[in-house]
């Protein structure tokens, strides 16, 4: 009988104790943000959607080879000798014409290994995280701008499934 009341007493005591700790937080500002209305500032190293500044891409295919999920598809062809030379922003000659550069963001695991592998730093991960779409096909991003000149002689750079 005595233990019964002692248990109740101890229970009430510890609850009052924890209530004292908890109630202090009633007067503290809230730490949560109401997401769609308020937004976090993303840190500059955020690893969200991939973006390729395709003007600087030399089509080396390093990114496609490093990617552990094979979600990058690069197809290139040699530029003709008589064509004017094209250079990336850092001065690397673009000997290859990248006519397919697709990234399947639905397959990507956001590891960022491709961005470390890229020699010209043209493939970057941006802080953009709001890009949901209605169909999964829309998650395949086509970055390439140039068209192939000689489609028959083209060489696929990576065996990626795209």
């Amino acid at each position: 009988m005595l233990t019964y009341f002692r248990n109740i007493g101890q229970g009430i005591l510890t609850i009052v104790n924890s209530m004292a700790v908890a109630s202090r937080h009633l007067f503290k500002p809230s730490v949560t943000l109401q997401y769609p209305k308020e937004k976090w500032a993303m840190p500059e190293r955020s690893r969200m959607r991939l973006h390729n500044k395709v003007e600087d891409c030399i089509g080396c295919g390093q990114c496609a080879r490093t990617c552990p999920t094979d979600c990058i598809l690069v197809k290139t062809e040699k530029r003709g000798k008589e064509e004017p030379p094209v250079f990336a922003a850092d001065g690397t000659a673009k000997k290859l014409r990248t006519y397919v550069f697709d990234i399947d963001m639905a397959l990507c695991c956001y590891c960022g290994l491709c961005t470390f592998a890229c020699p010209t730093q043209c493939l970057v991960m941006t802080g953009d995280y709001e890009y949901s779409v209605y169909s999964i096909d829309e998650h395949i991003y086509h970055f390439a701008k140039e068209k192939p000149l000689i489609p028959a002689g083209s060489k696929e750079q990576s065996p990626s499934k795209g």
Partner: peptide, 30 residues
Amino acid sequence: RDREDILDFFEETCGARLLYNYNCIGGLTQ
């Protein structure tokens, strides 16, 4: 709430909150 602060450090360092890919063989990615 307290864990969130740690995740913020991780996010600032490597860009991801949960799946960091921060260590790499022979060093750190950044």
